[in-house]
């Protein structure tokens, strides 16, 4: 098994650097398990949202069909889906020991993610002005908890990828940080998948009524 501190060249770089050491293998597997737990977490939030959808104290409060707009959420969805794709490119370059390109694609991923967050903040702000607040109804609490938890995950993912990029900017790739980049990108994909469900369950089903 390769050592974590060894210096590599493009030729000696292993084909699966994310699983090349025992520590890396553990990290890889542990992270998959963690995502399993996250799935239950979001599952519970989805269930709560579905149970409380459109549950408001009186008719003065807006319902799902009054709120959601296709343009905005579609744009957000496209941004996040694209960022998932760009993180795949980054991992492709990581596996090929091309550090500069990996960093570049990660940067694009981060920018797309930040744009998504920006849209989400704009969206929330818009809803609050329409009277759909976290504290105004059970529906509001459930909506902001589910979508907000996801947004929080996006924000955390951005910080995580950014700090990995900064921390490793000077020293390049090795078997110590390759698995870190890899699980960060796994996390990013997971966030993306959760968003697909939010887009379907919250927005599409919400617009239908």
């Amino acid at each position: 098994m390769a050592s974590v501190q060894e210096k590599f060249t493009e030729m000696t770089w292993p084909s699966s650097p994310e699983k090349a050491t025992l520590e890396a293998k553990n990290k890889f597997l542990g992270f998959w398990f963690f995502l399993g737990g996250e799935t239950v977490l979001f599952g519970s939030l989805f269930a709560t949202y579905l149970a409380l959808k459109d549950k408001v104290p009186d008719s003065s409060h807006p319902l799902a069909k009054d709120l959601y707009s296709m343009d905005l959420t579609f744009a957000a969805t496209m941004l996040l889906l694209t960022s998932s794709l760009t993180s795949v490119y980054a991992m492709y370059h990581m596996k090929n020991f091309n550090f500069q390109r990996m960093q570049a694609w990660l940067l694009i991923t981060v920018l797309l993610g930040a744009a998504f967050l920006g849209l989400e903040i704009y969206e929330f702000n818009h809803y609050v002005h329409e009277g759909h607040k976290f504290t105004s109804s059970a529906f509001g609490s459930a909506f902001y908890s589910l979508v907000g938890f996801h947004g929080g995950h996006v924000a955390f993912g951005l910080l995580w990828i950014l700090s990995l990029m900064v921390r490793n900017a000077k020293r390049g790739l090795d078997l110590y940080n390759a698995p870190k980049f890899y699980v960060a990108s796994l996390y990013w994909h997971f966030i993306d998948v959760v968003w697909v469900f939010i887009f379907t369950v919250v927005y599409l089903m919400g617009m239908v009524g």
Partner: peptide
């Protein structure tokens, strides 16, 4: 989390009057 939001941050998950359950 839901309990915490309700008790500490004014959410309404369990407030029946506000649609909670």
């Amino acid at each position: 989390f839901l309990l915490m939001f309700d008790r500490l941050f004014g959410a309404n998950f369990f407030d029946v009057a506000a649609g909670g359950n």
